[in-house]
Design a protein around this nucleic acid. Structure first.
Lengths: 217, 217
DNA sequence: GAAGTTCAGATTGTATACACTTCGGATAAT
DNA sequence: ATTATCCGAAGTGTATACAATCTGAACTTC
């Protein structure tokens, strides 16, 4: 049988299920259930759970089990400033790399055009996915592996909170402009301006999200 | 016997030994040796190692064992910009909390006076420890648990690189001034100025470190 | 009937046993 | 002497067995 490639798969699938809320916050993860589900013993399951715990996705209580961490608005309010700062930094670091490579610029502009189409079709879910791809692409061009890892963790946590339907239509129109703006600044090769553009994009997205949440409650 | 309080102790002691280089980078960690050393079975040892791996302190190679990660100047060059940004942010967030609490200001000023004494005594090791305490204290007053966790990880990684004797005497004198400056800005309650002061403190420390390293090679 | 107690089932924590892979030296062939 | 092959010891990966703890329902007691 496939010997121990499985454990890596268990980890990434379980992780993704937690991040995309198919395993909702607050769920209990039973070692026995998981081991039966994946046809492995409890030992590798426990190692997967420890890894998830160390990433802050679950919490293990002695003799009581493992719970998927809750994510509240307060958490997101703490996470966003960090994300805004670090994505700004990533944008600044990525600027010389992207502006010096026409291929990369084309990829980003293609994302923008696709976002435009999705926004006109009111395909909110698709838009959010494309939006994520756009930002992912910038991170991964920043050349700083430590930064990439931190941003991926932050993004996972934030995504766990975002309720997809929440995104407001008029937010999307503005968002498209902001992404074109980031592209333009990247093309100019001005890292400081890219940093500010990325930061204000996230800042506005967060403010709109908060406004929407408080209006609805 | 103490049932499973031990595993937490094993984790923190092993972690500290890696961070303070008493287990140097590149060392191999054998599960059998560790389990004999702590009088436990391999199972809890493996869970500790997975946790350390997830933090980026060790790397596990299939069927070959676990190695303590190397930390190079290139790593530190990637880590420092992140740290500079985030400690600046932490300083800004901590400003209203600290400036509104005379007790906290007194603690920080006490650290500064102690640093002054240690610097005059040329007690470099003691100075570095106190310097760390100073920054730790500011982080932990920022009120953002996620930020604190990230900063602690970054600090562990950087500390693993810093060779204590490397710190140059004249750097210490300037460092004392910079810390008094941070205190002053905190007392004023101006978050933006605190942010800049913290950032420039770290930026200069890193530049001096790099200069020293390149001169010696 | 309400509050406290007890005990069995279930779940987690740890130890041990077994399976698979790696690595290095001994042996054999050229 | 050099290369190739093979085997076994050592170490990791996984499964199973046992110990400690928690939970909840039945039972007692008032």
């Amino acid at each position: 049988m496939s010997p121990q490639f499985t454990i890596e798969r268990i980890y990434s699938e379980l992780r993704q299920q937690i991040v995309n809320r198919s395993i909702p916050p607050g769920s209990k993860l039973s070692e026995n259930l998981l081991s039966r589900k994946w046809n492995v013993s409890r030992t590798p399951i426990r190692e997967v759970l420890r890894r998830l715990e160390s990433e802050g996705l679950v919490t293990s209580h002695r003799y009581k089990g493992v719970l998927v961490n809750l994510i509240t608005l307060e958490d997101v309010e703490q996470l966003y400033p960090i994300r805004i700062y670090l994505e700004g930094l990533a944008g600044k670091l990525a600027t010389p790399i992207i502006s010096g490579d026409p291929e990369k610029l084309k990829v980003l502009e293609k994302f923008c055009r696709e976002m435009e189409v999705l926004s006109k079709k009111k395909d909110i879910e698709g838009y959010i996915a494309k939006n994520n791809e756009f930002h992912y692409y910038i991170w991964h061009s920043c050349g700083n592996g430590w930064l990439i890892k931190i941003l991926e963790n932050l993004n996972s946590q934030v995504n766990r909170f975002i309720v997809k339907a929440l995104h407001v239509p008029h937010r999307i129109d503005r968002s498209v402009c902001e992404h074109w703006d980031i592209c333009e600044k990247l093309r100019m090769g001005d890292g400081k301006k890219v940093e500010r553009a990325v930061q204000s994009n996230h800042r506005r997205a967060f403010e709109d999200l908060k406004r929407e949440l408080t209006n609805r409650s």
